[in-house]
């Protein structure tokens, strides 16, 4: 599903740039936000087909972002959580959120791209 729009929400600017390059090379359109609040704003303004979300962020962390997302956006896009904090304990917290996949950092480009492709092909849960 090339041409799909991916929103990267991560406070690590360099990583954002790196992921954005990876996704653009694969034909995706990419927008970037560096905290949860900014991510929600961009999503509301520009929309996205998929969100690649970090968990540890200032202002609004990933968990809060996931909790608020369905409240702010009527049909939220799928979310791939990419975080070094994606531990089994965190998985339990994430269990209730509507997420497509969890990718633990370090992110392997091929795996991430495959996961993104897979997530974009799945129909949204609404």
């Amino acid at each position: 599903m090339t041409g799909a729009r991916i929103l990267i929400v991560d406070d690590d600017e360099l990583l954002c740039e790196m992921l954005a390059s990876l996704f653009r090379m694969s034909g995706y359109e990419v927008t970037v936000a560096h905290d949860g609040e900014a991510g929600l704003t961009k999503l509301a303004a520009e929309g996205a087909d998929l969100i690649v979300l970090d968990l540890v962020m200032p202002k609004m962390d990933g968990l809060r972002f996931l909790r608020i997302l369905p409240e702010r956006i009527a049909q939220p896009p799928r979310v791939i959580v990419a975080s070094a904090s994606a531990t089994p304990e965190m998985d339990k917290k994430l269990g209730q959120a509507e997420i497509a996949a969890v990718v633990r950092k370090p992110v392997k480009p091929a795996l991430l791209l495959a996961t993104v492709a897979e997530a974009l092909e799945k129909p949204t849960g609404g």
């Binding site: 990583l15 790196m18 990876l22 653009r24 090379m25 992110v107």
Partner: peptide, 30 residues
């Protein structure tokens, strides 16, 4: 680790995008 992972990611992207000059330049800058 995060930084090294970014480097690793960059290296892998670099390998995957060999020949796409503008991307490689950007990636190496990053």
């Amino acid at each position: 680790r995060n930084d090294l992972e970014v480097i690793e990611l960059g290296a892998e992207i670099g390998q995957a995008s060999a020949g796409e000059g503008s991307h490689v330049k950007e990636i190496f800058f990053n």
